[in-house]
Simulated assay, not measured.
Amino acid sequence: MLIGVPKEIKNHEYRVGLTPAGVKELARHGHQVLLETGAGTAIGFPDEQYAAAGAELVAAAADIFGRAEMIIKVKEPQPVEYRMLRHGQILFTYLHLAPDPEQTRGLVDSGAIAIAYETVTDDRGGLPLLAPMSEVAGRMSIQAAARALEKSQGGSGVLLGGVPGVAPGHVTVIGAGVVGLNAARMAMGLGAEVAILDRSLPRLKEIDNVFGGRIRTLYSTQDAIEQELRQADAVIGAVLIPGAAAPKLVTRDMLGLMKPGSVLVDVAIDQGGCFETSKPTTHQDPTYVVDGITHYCVANMPGGVARTSTMALTNATLPFAVALADKGYRNALQSDPHLRNGLNVYRGQITYEAVAHDLGYPYLPALEALRE
């Protein structure tokens, strides 16, 4: 199969869809990789390494989209990119379609076969291609909150870890999934007082057992969230409904409960955000203030540590990319239900139920679509 890897063009996005090791692995399986020049240069993967691994370097993204049978990316295609997709071409990347009707329409109109990293599943009910970036984003969320709390950044001037004789800051994490757990661990490691909320009692019990009460666990209700907002210096939004828009758990009115200069970090912003006042920001301009509360809503947080993120992501995606290339998309998707769960758009039809529901499209089950 002829596989194309374009350079990412989203603001301050330096990750890349394949490392040189991934190119070498695909070449070992008999596949050819087209790589846009400079795609990995910024994170220490120069063109020479890709060429040595067997990639053909291509100067223009248009040539990659025009020639490749499968496009492997990191972030969702931007308008200039999804307009270059063609009927029957495979796109393998993060999509996050539910809060993005424009991209969804572009993919539907293209006739491409769009497989989303974030909805591929595994035998344990997890999301193995989302998990590596969730781990990174969860850990980064505490770094972002700590920085935003500095007085020079407009924050309240609280040091999360405190010092002897001074109480630490209070971090509230809403959602105890991969993002939430990693955020809580980082906050605890800094010495902050940490509370985590979720509606899964088994998950809360697991966290309590592992951390021996060092992370306070709370069943998530509106009342519990409101109580936490009153004392929190930083609130991490880490709620995920796979493939669907995130629920709005903190309204604008609820911001009035918070201390001035406190911080909201919305890690769910790729799925529309879990705070009513959230809107996507960039690494170039990451924060804004609403009613005295700093909001950090960078939509590609792991891009800030792009080398680590690229290696973590491609470790997870490469086996699926090899399967798609070796078997062809139809056989690969039909034979692997977990990979098939990643199929969101198929030749003009929506094949992921949550996306169809949230955006008002007819839903065609993926297995039925593949039989056509």
Results as ranks from 00 to 15, higher is better:
Leu2Trp: 01
Lys7Ala: 13
Lys7Glu: 14
Lys10Ser: 06
Asn11Asp: 11
Glu13Leu: 05
Tyr14Asp: 03
Tyr14Gln: 15
Arg15Ser: 12
Arg15Gly: 12
Leu18Glu: 07
Val23Asp: 04
Val23His: 08
Leu34His: 03
Glu36Thr: 12
Glu36His: 06
Thr41Lys: 14
Ala42Phe: 08
Tyr50Asn: 14
Ala55Gln: 07
Glu56Gly: 00
Ile64Ser: 03
Gly66His: 10
Pro77Ser: 09
Pro77Thr: 09
Val80Gly: 03
Tyr82Met: 12
Arg83Thr: 10
Leu91Asn: 10
Tyr94Thr: 05
Ala98Asp: 12
Pro99Leu: 10
Asp100Asn: 14
Glu102Gly: 04
Thr104Ala: 03
Arg105Val: 08
Ser110Lys: 06
Glu118His: 08
Glu118Gln: 13
Val120Thr: 04
Val120Pro: 05
Leu127Glu: 13
Ser134Pro: 06
Ala137Asn: 07
Met140Tyr: 02
Ala144Ser: 06
Ser156Phe: 04
Gly165Gln: 05
Val166Glu: 08
Val179Gly: 02
Gly189Cys: 12
Ala195Ser: 13
Leu197Trp: 01
Gly213Met: 01
Thr217Phe: 00
Leu218Ile: 11
Gln222Arg: 15
Gln222Cys: 06
Ala232Leu: 08
Gly237Lys: 09
Gly243Asn: 02
Ala244Val: 01
Ala246Phe: 01
Pro247Leu: 09
Lys248Tyr: 14
Lys248Cys: 09
Thr251Gly: 03
Arg252Lys: 13
Met254Leu: 02
Ser262Met: 00
Leu264Pro: 00
Val267Gly: 01
Asp270Gly: 03
Gly272Pro: 15
Lys279Asp: 02
Thr287Ile: 07
Ala299Tyr: 08
Met311Ser: 02
Thr314His: 11
Asn315Tyr: 05
Ala323Pro: 00
Leu324Gln: 09
Asp326Ile: 14
Asn331His: 09
Leu339Tyr: 11
Asn341Met: 09
Gly342Glu: 07
Gly342Met: 15
Gly348Thr: 07
Gln349Trp: 01
Leu359Gln: 14
Pro362Phe: 01
Tyr363Thr: 05
Ala366Cys: 04
Leu367Glu: 15
Arg371Tyr: 04
Glu372Val: 15
